[in-house]
Nucleic acid binder design. Structure first.
Lengths: 172, 172
DNA sequence: CCTTGACCTGAAGTTAGGTTCAAGTTACAT
DNA sequence: ATGTAACTTGAACCTAACTTCAGGTCAAGG
């Protein structure tokens, strides 16, 4: 029951439902660490499973490894995190999930009315472009979860350079 | 009002809220096409905006370009798609969104109870690994939208090759 | 005619989150 | 002592959905 039992990477990976390569990758990214045997092999304490579980749960909520890394950084450095520590970290997920759910619900409802009226991609449709006015579209999409969002006000920007304002009409 | 007014790529892109490079990319992927001027420049009819709106809406629902491409392939080849055509395509999105919403809701509710009991990553938590048994985790995750899912039963597989069965216990 | 902004192509680069490979080393059961 | 499964590393590769770049062409106003 003492934590002197250290597990090799394959064992930990298997129990966490991850590939060993993923654990090495996480280590490179600074999300986890391991002690080493004299021969250089990684050994993990059992509570690493908690950390890995947290990482997976966070990913499922839609957080990037970057965000997860930041969150993990707020854990106490020298003592083993308590359940309260983990709970604190996961508390903020709720809002995120609420937002995601709200966004998808809005999208669904918009879609439903579109199907009802057959207006998809015609004027007055929340899901799509008005007939001739640019990009007022996407009103619903703003509520979408980050991982689901594409091409709307993303930092990879779709009309940020030249040709943003083309000619006949602007951004409406 | 006749569709002899053909728009250049910058114009169409701007109105659709996309980058010209995205349109060229879609063309390479076979999602759209364009007529060309004698000089080889692309010209798009106005109703291309519908198609682009569809593509964006579909992406927002979480479909990949591959899936969208398949869907577009079911449109009538020689006539201009009607609103009914577009509505048919988008009808199936509803189920998808319903599933996504249900999945996120389940995840949120699981999270809420986890926060309540402080059990995150301990036994009996729907969001995380049981203390010592591998990967029964993910039950909730299966309901997650494709774009949000990672590392659970994805085709990029996390323990599919060797070391799937490590030692002390299997997949539970 | 001439300028200039928009357009063309193919190839390469980008980000995220890993996986796969090659070549070599370690750990442990027998 | 030894066989072999599991481990090590760095580098290259992977998918998706694009963007960026280089080098060159087109279109339209004046």
């Amino acid at each position: 029951m003492d934590n002197t039992d250290l597990l090799p990477i394959g064992e930990i990976a298997s129990r966490a439902g991850l590939a060993p390569s993923a654990l090495r990758y996480y280590e490179r990214r600074g999300l986890i660490s391991a002690v080493r045997t004299s021969g250089g092999q990684r050994r993990y304490p059992r509570n690493m499973l908690r950390r890995l579980a947290f990482i997976r749960a966070a990913q499922n909520v839609g957080l990037s490894l970057q965000e997860i890394s930041t969150a993990l950084g707020t854990l106490p450095a020298q003592r083993t995190p308590t359940t309260a520590d983990w709970a604190r970290l996961s508390r903020s997920w709720r809002n995120r999930l609420d937002e995601q759910i709200a966004g998808l619900t809005a999208l669904r409802d918009g879609l439903t009315s579109c199907i009802g009226c057959g207006c998809l991609s015609l004027r007055r449709c929340r899901l799509s472009n008005p007939n001739d006015k640019a990009a007022s579209y996407g009103a619903g999409a703003r509520y979408l979860p980050h991982a689901l969002r594409r091409s709307i006000d993303a930092e990879s920007g779709q009309q940020r350079s030249r040709n943003a304002r083309s000619s006949t009409n602007g951004l409406a």
